[in-house]
Design a binder for these strands. Structure first.
Length: 259
DNA sequence: ATGACTTGGTTACCAAGA
């Protein structure tokens, strides 16, 4: 089974690329983030025609997540239990589903903006809610994974220049501690191969030729429990999808499971 | 040079992304 996660930065703009990539990659289950559409604008019909059911959590202009599956889609959970509010709103940033016997969550962790911004405290609260859900679901013998845009670089080498991130979000001790707390629920990270260069970055800013210069970040992550990671045969970042006109600023992370 | 793209919406500018 091939499982992937991809922040598409608008499913409306990316639809033709998405359909093309699904066919080319042969992905069975895809976790999507930043749909940037409401449920009325979600392209359920073209995806169904391509063979994919969808579990959706979306509300409009910002955020929005989905799980696409062509191997079954059951036990959908819309939203993270206990998710915190931001400015009075619980944003659509998580959706869970069981696909072909594998329990997956597609997550879009809040950006945080600046370390002294309320969005940063919200990010840490949101990661704590994710930890609680993982603690409730990761135990047991069934494969379980959380995949998505975490907006956290786990290690210093996961950003193109550590000095450029001094004082910035995505690299702070508190954010990395939140990932450590997630690991303590029994999850470990599935480290993808890089198809070029040494570190498998997953995001490159649109500006300043960041992609050609490989000024990237590794912030799209996969955490699985032991039954999930034991089944992993291969994992890589498909940086080819970041190329060309009309690309998302994130590349898909692909995981191949035995069976 | 406190910006350099891209996206969708309170559109001919703005917020947000990271």
């Amino acid at each position: 089974m091939r499982i992937a996660t991809w922040n598409v930065n608008s499913i409306t703009v990316r639809l033709e690329r998405l359909l093309s990539w699904l066919e080319r990659s042969g992905t069975d289950v895809l976790c999507l983030q930043e749909l940037k559409c409401g449920p009325e604008a979600f392209p359920a019909e073209p995806l169904r025609a391509a063979g994919y059911e969808a579990a959706l959590h979306a509300s409009g202009r910002w955020n929005g997540v989905a799980v696409l599956s062509r191997v079954g889609l059951e036990a959908v959970t819309t939203g993270l239990p206990g998710a915190p509010e931001y400015e009075g709103v619980v944003e659509p940033r998580a959706v869970g589903a069981t696909c072909g016997g594998v329990r997956v969550w597609s997550v879009y962790v809040p950006n945080g903006r600046e370390v002294d911004h309320p969005h940063y405290a919200y990010k840490l609260r949101w990661l704590e809610a994710l930890r609680e859900t993982a603690a409730a679901e990761a135990a047991g013998g069934a494969p379980f994974a959380v995949l998505g845009d975490f907006n956290v670089a786990p290690r210093d080498e996961d950003v193109w220049d550590r000095a450029a991130f001094e004082g910035a979000t995505h690299v702070t001790a508190a954010e990395r501690a939140a990932l450590d707390a997630l690991r303590e629920t029994g999850l470990s990270e599935v480290m993808p191969r890089a198809l070029k260069y040494d570190v498998p970055f997953t995001y490159w800013d649109y500006r300043q030729l960041c992609f050609p210069k490989n000024r990237g970040m590794r912030i799209d992550l996969v955490f699985g429990n032991a039954p999930f990671t034991a089944a992993v045969k291969d994992a890589y970042v498909d940086r080819e999808e970041r190329k060309g006109k009309g690309a998302s600023d994130h590349a898909p992370v692909v995981v191949d499971l035995a069976g």
